[in-house]
Amino acid sequence: MNNLIEIITEVIGKYNYWIAILLMMSGFYTVIVSGNLIKKLLGLGIFQTSVLIFFISLSKIKGGTAPILLDEKAAEAMQPVIYGNPLPHVLMLTAIVVGVATLSMGMALVVRINEAFGSIEEDDIHRVDEAF
């Protein structure tokens, strides 16, 4: 019984990772299953976002503050200072930019595809292509 509670608290305690995994899988699932090109891109966006949560979870520390240099008085008052690791945040800023670029590139492509094929449904496009 104790063991079970331990496992449950362990699972709940790491909820942020579970959220990341859930988002990742649902995004991935959307990319694979959906036949609509826009929906595929949305799935891709969710998939990429899950990585942001994963990285930021890595840098979070309980009771940690922002990594800002304190002036001497404040530093004496709260020794030792615990702060979150800023590096993953910075990495994710880059990843966000990459995500935005990918998404807009994909959207632009979908617009062009719609102009050329008259549809954004994968099945329709395949049908048009075969008649080509």
Binding site: V31, L37, K40, L44, T102, M105, G106, L109, V110, R112, I113, A116, F117, I125, D129, F132
Partner: peptide, 11 residues
């Protein structure tokens, strides 16, 4: 079809 090829590659 270059467009769909590019889209597929993007995904």
């Amino acid at each position: 079809r270059a467009l769909t090829a590019s889209y597929q590659y993007l995904i």
